[in-house]
């Protein structure tokens, strides 16, 4: 008898299954487009180009049949980053530049989100790992890059949640909307979390022999013996209350 988890709401999966042309497009191409857009848009401050890129991205959501609210869902948590950037650029440089920079960030994030919405993350990680394999000779460790990407995907929503918590706590104590007051506690909590995550990765990566070939003594069977995990974990409790 397995413990039944609570019957909480089942939020929709992140990668929505779908048959749109964007879902079917090879992951490698989508990532190339994303990389090209990231590089290309970084070199322009033309509102026409940036606005056009944003419109194209919006069209991508339509083609992939992703509701627009998903797009806003990505942008809303970023407001606290975008507002200070907008203000600083506006006061220090020009308001046109401020609009351009914010449009660029929104476009790239929305595009990245569109790629993740239409590509299963394991497919994406596999593609990236494969693409990086030739760079091994330069000391790039594809497995590590893949892990870093997975971690980024995994923890974006978590950090979004942390930001919300910090903001709620500040509001509860009567502090108004102040993006700068949000930054420090959020940074501290994120760093503390990063420490925990590092430990968890360390604790769980007993199987990863890529790194330290040094300790040669490995009397523990590396491969769980045929069906041994299967045989042991699901066995009913030998002793119970």
């Amino acid at each position: 008898m397995s413990p039944t988890p609570s019957s909480e709401s089942h939020a929709p999966a992140r990668t929505r299954p779908g048959r749109s042309p964007l879902h079917r497009m090879p992951a490698g191409i989508k990532l190339l487009v994303l990389a090209a857009a990231g590089t290309g848009l970084a070199f322009t401050t033309s509102l026409w180009v940036l606005g056009g890129a944003l419109a194209l991205t919006g069209a991508g959501y339509a083609i992939a049949r992703q509701p627009v609210r998903r797009l806003f869902g990505v942008i809303r948590p970023m407001i606290w980053l975008l507002v200070p950037i907008f203000l600083v650029q506006g006061f220090m440089e020009s308001w046109i530049l401020a609009v351009a920079i914010v449009t660029r960030i929104i476009t790239l994030v929305a595009l990245a989100q569109l790629v993740t919405l239409t590509t299963p993350s394991d497919t994406m990680i596999a593609v990236i790992t494969r693409a990086l394999t030739p760079f091994r000779v330069f000391g790039v460790h594809p497995g590590k890059v893949a892990l870093a990407i997975s971690l980024a995907l995994r923890f974006l929503p978590v950090i979004g949640g942390l930001a919300q918590e910090v903001r709620d706590a500040q509001r509860a104590r009567g502090l108004g909307h102040n993006p700068l007051a949000l930054a420090l506690p959020l940074l501290i909590r994120t760093l503390r979390m990063a420490g925990d995550v590092t430990d968890a990765i360390e604790a769980r990566s007993g199987g990863d022999d890529d790194e330290d070939a040094a300790p040669a003594r490995t009397p523990v069977p590396v491969t769980p013996r045929a069906g041994s995990a299967a045989a042991s974990s699901p066995a009913p409790a030998p002793r119970s209350s």
Binding site: E202, G207, D209, R217, P219, V220
Partner: peptide, 13 residues
Amino acid sequence: AGKAIRRRVGFVF
């Protein structure tokens, strides 16, 4: 033998 031990001893935080 850190890695061999981590295969032997799991950890839940």
